[in-house]
């Protein structure tokens, strides 16, 4: 064992678990918030026609309908699939592209203006282009998700490559480590947190813009259903679809992304825990 007893004080060994314990007081606060929101919603719905603001009960019925007739799973599935494809392509292109731009100064300087320009183009404009180019098809939504997600991923990965520690490269050099191992063992782990936060952002944006794309350029999917319900003045169904989207996003974000990030980057000094 280490001889110096003061050395032991700093060591808090058990690594963080995959899921952190839920704080009971926090759960209570969240419950109060949900109840309050539903209460206000219900009170407001009493004084307006149901096609302007349907009450919670009506929306619940609509929700049950789309769940039982399979509408929900079909459309949620197709939308999720489109987002996933657009996002995956964006990640597959954005990750290597971002690394190259960061590792090669010349390429970085040359392409520097492209990213901000891409970022300023509204997703609605991409959607219009997509309809011109791809018509009413899966490709339209996928393209819009891709064009929105890719610049975000590139920007983040690019930033990540700038943080690669030259000292670690030197360490690999004295160990006579081949270049490809330097890439996988030093560049990649350094970039990963940046890629991950970029990907999270891109996924969230992609999910939102996919709805825009589906309302104008698709004959299926949640976005299409939303517009259809609005056209038929089935406001209760609009609410039901919206609710499922919010729940879906919350599950993906809090149930998958956040725990995964906590686990992958457990080596980071946890500021929240202190």
């Amino acid at each position: 064992m280490a001889k110096n007893s003061t050395e032991l004080i700093d060591a808090k060994l058990p690594a963080q678990p995959l899921f952190r314990g839920l704080r009971p007081d926090l759960v209570g606060q969240r419950l109060v918030l949900v109840v309050a929101v539903i209460g206000i919603w219900w009170l407001s719905s009493l004084s307006v026609p149901h096609y302007i603001l349907p009450g919670p009960a009506r929306v619940w019925d609509a929700l049950q309908l789309i769940v039982t007739n399979g509408d929900l799973w079909n459309n949620l599935g197709i939308t999720l699939w489109r987002v996933a494809v657009g996002f995956t392509v964006a990640a597959l292109i954005g990750l290597p592209f971002g690394i190259v731009l960061g590792a090669n100064r010349r390429a970085g300087e040359f392409f520097e203006p492209v990213i901000p320009v891409l970022n300023t183009v509204s997703s609605a404009i991409w959607a219009i282009f997509a309809i011109i180019w791809f018509g009413i098809s899966n490709a339209t939504t996928i393209f819009v998700v891709f064009m929105t997600a890719m610049p975000l991923i590139i920007t983040n990965v690019w930033q990540g490559t700038r943080t690669v520690n030259a000292d670690f490269i030197e360490l690999a050099q004295v160990l006579r480590m081949p270049q490809w191992k330097v890439m996988t063992k030093i560049y990649l782990p350094t970039i990963l947190p940046y890629f991950f936060s970029g990907a999270r952002l891109a996924f969230g944006f992609g999910w939102r813009v996919s709805l825009v794309a589906e309302t104008i350029g698709s004959s299926s999917g949640v976005g299409y259903r939303l517009r259809q319900a609005a056209d038929l003045i089935r406001t209760d169904q609009v609410f039901a679809w919206t609710l499922t989207l919010v729940i879906m996003m919350a599950i993906i974000e809090m149930g998958m992304m956040k725990p995964l990030e906590n686990y992958l980057f457990r080596w980071k000094k946890d500021a929240e825990a202190q």
């Binding site: 064992m1 280490a2 003061t6 050395e7 700093d10 060994l13 457990r266 080596w267």
Partner: peptide, 21 residues
């Protein structure tokens, strides 16, 4: 270097002397 038992610690969990070891 007498660091048995600290195999699975991340650098931020170790003191300066232990990191040096």
């Amino acid at each position: 270097v007498e660091l048995e038992g600290f195999e699975d610690a991340f650098p931020y969990q170790l003191s300066g002397g232990m990191r040096s070891r």
